[in-house]
Design a protein around this nucleic acid. Structure first.
Length: 514
RNA sequence: GGGCCGGUAGCUCAAUGGUAGAGCACUGCCCUUUUAAGGCAGGGGUUCUGGGUUCGAAUCCCAGCCGGCUCACCA
């Protein structure tokens, strides 16, 4: 924000900083040796009574940010924040001396200080440091947000996440859980014999998913590169090379819309296991998610909005059955056989659109019925009628061939592939399949995608000749999966927006900042 | 990109056509166990921007900027 708007406040604080320096304190000292972190003191001493604290006289030296001040003439209280906890300090003129008490009086909310003293309980029973010495550590030149309501303006919360973290304690919890979740994923896969690897974020072809990429340029080589939309094809090259169990947790970049469930850069876990198929991936996913929930929440059940979600049991249903199960009664019914019949499905689009419009949802484009094949329509219908209804963890299996360019066909029905997506809380969380390892069939699939691309579908998969070459050296039968980490964090932190689980979500650049 | 809602003091919010306010924060004074500390006094505004209507606009109208939610693309 412009400096002139707050020049009075800043000038006041500059004067105070000068006064602090005049007392003999450094304006920006190098370090402060603490004996304890604030949460440690709170945890360790909570059980101790006032009498026990008085008898033991436990000396501590801590540092933190001043969050509240209650001066009382020649004494005063303050709360220091650190490590997500607050601890009260009590400063008396006769205990800290003139110089330190002058410092106390010059403090502003937001300043960083060190305190040395001993623990006691106040009359109201609050654990407090009886200060014997104060150290000035850094000045807050700008004022903190209001102390009761905190900071609610979501734009400032996202743009100035440091403020959000300072004053909204639950925000810290979200990101602590996110860290625990990623840690738990790594521990689990490590124990399963997986190797963590890193593959290119800048790729000459943006493969492995269907999405529009970001494009960039390398000057020395004078080539265009794409920020990756998925690591998939590189990880499978590693399977070819004999790294039989690999995983990667890192960012993907997709040049698509922004919403409460989409950020242009998002974190994806992908893992590949040689000599396994998608059934093995289902079993692994169930174990992984239970382990992660236990690690993060200590439970496999949790609230998400007004729903109670349990990882104790995972449903499994084919895409066709899901469409039939959730097909709206207001629309003319479909028989199972008609789900292979593009014409029969196209005939339902007008009725379906009427139903969608009544519910305030945008209809399916009118031309969808003309040029789409039955598998594409099936996937479209699934997303339209079933996806948001899948609250409890549900594996949707048997995906149509047309929307699955990298998956192996089902032996008993080549129009469908060995693939699943896992839905929880109405969101797609995971996508997995038995990996296609037949190089000729892969070439055919790429060719089909290429045709879509030439018809104007910018998300259709590009032909990757080196990937076909890699498959031509022989890839073992392999199960592979991707899990959207941000959405998993949303579930386990009860956040409705992906921006609440990404520290610095992409926003339009701020205009008026100097 | 479409629809809906919003933008007033550093922060959270009032004021619905008639003198821009409150609480917190800030400044000064008093106060040695408070915790939304208290008491007294005070400073602080391009009401998002630009037009328009009107005797008079924070308020009504138009355009724009910014944000949220939602729909579409997508994970």
């Amino acid at each position: 924000m412009p400096e002139n708007e707050q020049s009075d406040l800043i000038q006041q604080r500059e004067k105070k900083l000068q006064a602090i320096v005049d007392l003999g304190f450094e304006a920006y000292p190098r370090k402060y040796d603490v004996t304890h972190a604030i949460p440690q003191i709170v945890t360790e001493n909570s059980p101790l009574s006032a009498e026990q604290l008085a008898a033991n006289k436990i000396s501590v030296r801590v540092a933190g940010r001043v969050m509240t001040m209650r001066p009382h003439g020649k004494a005063g209280f303050a709360h220091l924040a650190g490590g997500g906890k607050r601890l009260q300090i009590y400063v008396r003129l006769d205990a800290v001396g003139e110089r330190d008490f002058e410092l106390y009086k010059l403090l502003d909310l937001g300043d960083l200080i060190g305190v040395e003293g001993y623990l006691f309980r106040t009359r109201t029973g609050e654990l407090t440091i009886h200060a014997e010495h104060l150290q000035f550590l850094a000045k807050a030149m700008l004022p903190l947000p209001e102390k009761w309501h905190g900071l609610t303006d979501v734009e400032i919360r996202y743009r100035q996440r440091y403020l959000d973290l300072m004053v909204n304690e639950e925000v810290r919890t979200v990101f602590e859980r996110r860290g625990k979740l990623v840690r738990a994923v790594r521990d689990f896969l490590e124990a399963e014999g997986y190797l963590e690897v890193e593959t290119p974020m800048m790729q000459p072809l943006a493969g492995g998913a269907m999405a529009r990429p970001f494009i960039t340029h390398h000057n020395a080589l004078d080539i265009d590169l794409y920020l990756r939309i998925a690591p998939e094809l590189y990880l499978k090259r590693l399977i070819v090379g004999g790294l039989d169990r690999v995983y990667e947790i890192n960012r993907n970049f997709r040049n698509e819309g922004i919403s409460t469930r989409h950020n242009p850069e998002f974190t994806m876990l992908e893992f590949y296991q040689a000599y396994a198929d998608y059934h093995d991936m289902i079993a692994l996913t169930e174990r992984l998610l239970r382990r992660v929930a236990e690690a993060v929440l200590g439970s496999v059940e949790f609230d998400y909005g007004d729903q109670r979600i349990s990882f104790a049991k995972f449903e499994q249903i084919t895409m066709k059955d899901a469409v039939l199960k959730y097909w709206p009664s207001e629309v003319e019914a479909l028989t199972p056989a008609q789900l292979d019949d593009a014409q029969a499905m196209a005939d339902r689009i007008p009725g379906l659109n009427q139903w969608l419009i009544q519910r305030g949802v945008a209809p399916i484009p009118a031309d969808a019925g003309h040029d789409k094949r039955s598998g594409e329509l099936l996937a479209l219908f699934f997303e339209t009628v079933a996806e948001e209804r899948l609250i409890q963890p549900t594996f949707i299996v048997d995906y149509p061939l047309e929307v699955s360019p990298l998956s192996k066909q089902k032996p008993e029905n080549p129009n469908f592939v060995e693939r699943f997506e896992l839905y929880i809380g109405g969101m797609e969380i995971a996508n997995a399949f038995s990996e296609l390892n037949d190089p000729e069939e892969q070439r055919n699939r790429f060719q089909y995608q290429q045709n879509l691309r030439e018809k104007g579908d910018l998300t259709a998969h590009a032909i990757d000749e080196d990937y076909i070459r890699a498959l031509s050296f022989g890839m073992p039968p392999t199960g592979g999966e991707g899990i959207g980490i941000d959405r998993l964090v949303m579930l386990l932190t009860n956040c409705r927006s992906i921006r609440d689980v990404i520290l610095f979500p992409l926003l339009r650049p701020e205009k008026h900042i100097e």
